[in-house]
């Protein structure tokens, strides 16, 4: 059976890598990558088509290439990269609507894989420790990426009702992190001093970028349907992550979060929406039983290893800080030696 795969969002880092990996899969004849801008990186054997998924033209791409599997990667978590919140929402929501409309019209599409996010579960103090796929958000995210994700999933469910013959797989990925990818979370932990909510220490789960790609490839090639959480094993708390990244923290009351968020955005350090603020205060955990049993996927990196892989690429918090720290250590060492010698002399006497 000839398999033609369409990957949206191919000019973004994860989408590009995924398209390239899918092209190497046995049984896949042809991969069409779609995005509004040409990919900045080499996408190998993937045919790039410059098209906007917010435009009905996407239907013609699907038709003319005879696409049978659509992998929707164009749900963007970070507003910085697309020019703000408004375009982000437009790409996420309108883009998904148009893409699904095209898929519904198409007679060739058999399988749809959507990269969703764990943000659909929100973050509140009343959350269970681990969310299974059947649970909903205790408090629906009121804005930002979380709300987008919920709307995207809503449209996908609507599509599933109208096209029951299509296999649909939604992967709810935990925060993707790794040595190369850039997201709000990597921006946040790259700051020289990390502002943390005072009095909270949220649990976070991460997914290594390689694992994310593997899971999506497996999802695109396999026949699993439904909703599946994908996350690395274990959790890391915010303070622990800051310690692993070797960054000092600055505890701030949670009600100043809006102001601090605005400041960091203004300074270009990190862009955080309110739902991500509550994530940093209350955290979230995903139950990955279904990922192992149904998707048959085991991540290679635990949450902690994924974060350490990211932290290893971080430079020093303060340029020249190492010189200073060496100097202070040297002084301390010398002083202690001197005192020891004096003591030794004292006890010898």
């Amino acid at each position: 059976m000839a398999r033609v795969v369409l990957v949206t969002g191919v000019s973004r880092y994860l989408g590009g890598l995924l398209a390239r990996r899918i092209a190497l899969e046995p049984g896949v004849d042809h991969v069409v990558g779609v995005d509004v801008i040409p990919p900045p990186h080499d996408i190998g054997g993937v045919e790039f088509v410059r098209a906007d998924i917010r435009n009905p033209m996407i239907g013609r791409v699907i038709d003319s290439a005879g696409v049978d599997t659509v992998v929707h990667m164009n749900v963007i978590a970070t507003p910085t990269f697309v020019g703000g919140r408004t375009p982000q929402k437009e790409i996420n929501v309108i883009g998904t609507m148009q893409l699904l409309a095209a898929c519904q019209k198409s007679s060739t599409v058999r399988r749809l894989v959507v990269k969703s996010s764990a943000a659909v579960y929100g973050s509140t103090p009343r959350d269970p420790a681990m969310f299974t796929e059947d649970m909903g958000a205790r408090r629906t995210p009121s804005g930002g990426f979380g709300k987008d994700s919920i709307e995207v999933e809503g449209y996908v469910r609507g599509f599933a009702r109208r096209r029951p013959d299509t296999e649909i797989l939604m992967l709810r990925l935990a925060n993707v992190i790794g040595p190369r990818i850039r997201t709000s979370i990597t921006d946040y932990f790259s700051m020289p001093v990390i502002p943390v909510p005072l009095g909270y220490d949220a649990r976070m789960q991460f997914l290594h970028e390689d694992d994310a790609i593997d899971a999506l490839v497996l999802g695109g090639a396999g026949s699993t349907t439904g909703v599946v959480n994908v996350a690395g094993d274990g959790v890391v708390t915010v303070l622990q992550a800051a310690a692993l990244a070797g960054r000092p923290v600055l505890p701030l009351p949670l009600n100043t979060a809006g102001f601090v968020g605005g400041m960091t955005k203004r300074l270009g350090l990190a862009d955080f929406s309110p739902d991500q603020m509550s994530f940093l205060a209350f955290g979230r955990g995903l139950d990955t039983t279904r990922m192992r049993d149904e998707l048959g996927f085991t991540p290679r990196f635990t949450t902690r290893e994924a974060f350490e892989a990211f932290a290893a690429t971080l430079g020093p918090a303060v340029p020249g800080g190492s010189v200073l720290s060496d100097a202070v250590s040297g002084v301390a060492g010398t002083a202690s030696q001197a005192v020891l010698r004096a003591l030794g002399a004292g006890s010898g006497r």
Binding site: A245, G246, A312, P316, S325, V331, G333, L343
Partner: peptide, 28 residues
Amino acid sequence: LDPTISDAPGRSGLPVPDLTDLVEALVV
């Protein structure tokens, strides 16, 4: 990994002195 990063000091980039030395001094 980028070569410019690999030779950068790892995680102890803070201007905090090495703990072992401090410990020694403190214990004394």
